[in-house]
Simulated scan of single mutants.
Amino acid sequence: MKPFQLTYTAKAPSLLREALGDWGISKRTLASVKYGGGQILVNDAEVTVRHPLKKGDAVTVIFPIEEHGKGLSAEDGDLEIVYEDEALLIVEKPPLQNTIPSREHPFGSLANIVAKHFNDHGIPSTLHIATRLDRDTSGLVCIAKNRHIHHMISLQQQEKKMKRRYEALVHGTVEKDAFTITAPIGRKNASIIEREVREDGQFAETEVRVIEKLEGYSHVTLQLNTGRTHQIRVHLAHIGHPLLGDDLYGGKRDLIGRQALHCTELELIHPVSGDSLFFRSSLNRDMQSLV
């Protein structure tokens, strides 16, 4: 199993520690390299972070091999891969599948199946799922193949450089064609699962655009500008248009047996190459039949 590694070229004289920070290597990642079996090489020679760099020096960071957590078993299962390289894995998650194992569903999650994929292909990483989806929600999921790559993607999310767009079917006729929901979200009192809009919650923002107004419900597209738990579900219920099938937040299951939400688009900057990546996913059959 070959460890993940990245090579950079020094553009100007500096201390190695400063250059690593400029390249996005966090202190936590640096500590894991230092104490977890990784290496830092300059022109193929192992050095410390106090090493002075000259312009043109080749810096190679060899990341330690990661192990799956004890609670994550590798399982056979269908895995629909949209894109894969040494740093990223983009997959389609079907509805009615957990992203990670839970007490109620300890087996058969996307994470269990990806763990098997990593084992089979000698990928030296535990699971770093950067964009989780609820069990009922289908669509695109982004997985990092290394702790450092996960950190770089998290920075993109914080800086709003990663875009996630969804399509949903909601109860009622949404009157405005385009608008933004800005409402803080927090955990509902006496519930470990349910969230609600509340003054002391975390800032949350969702952009909404109507695709089509149908009989008794509307087909909308949504863009997340923040990533709060159950954000889309809570925001849509808050404005009186809960998702079809989302009985936790006021939706009915007469037309569909799960919340009608699908992650259709994922846009990000590749954390290694810097290239712009864009992925598009079609609606699942159950939602497609309603539109």
Rank of each mutant, 00 (worst) to 15 (best):
K2C: 05
A10L: 10
A12E: 13
A12V: 11
A12S: 10
P13V: 04
S14I: 04
L15A: 08
L16R: 01
E18D: 12
W23N: 04
G24H: 04
G24R: 03
K27G: 00
L30P: 02
L30R: 10
A31P: 01
G37E: 01
G38Q: 10
N43C: 00
V47G: 05
H51Y: 15
P52M: 01
K55L: 05
G56T: 13
V59P: 03
P64M: 02
I65N: 06
A74D: 00
G77S: 05
I81C: 11
E86T: 11
A87W: 14
P94Q: 13
N98Y: 08
P101I: 08
P101Q: 07
H105S: 08
H105F: 13
S109P: 10
A111N: 04
N112W: 03
I113S: 14
A115C: 06
K116A: 14
H117V: 10
G122M: 07
G122D: 04
I123K: 14
A130G: 02
A130K: 02
T131D: 04
R132W: 11
L133A: 15
T137M: 13
V141L: 04
M152F: 03
I153P: 01
Q157K: 01
M162A: 08
M162H: 06
L169A: 04
K176C: 00
A178V: 03
R195H: 14
D200C: 06
S218T: 03
N225F: 02
T229W: 01
L236M: 14
G240H: 09
G240P: 12
G251L: 05
R258L: 04
Q259F: 08
C263E: 02
E265A: 12
L268N: 12
V272P: 13
V272A: 11
S273W: 06
S273G: 12
D275F: 11
R280T: 11
N284W: 12
D286Y: 13
L290K: 02
V291G: 01
V291I: 15
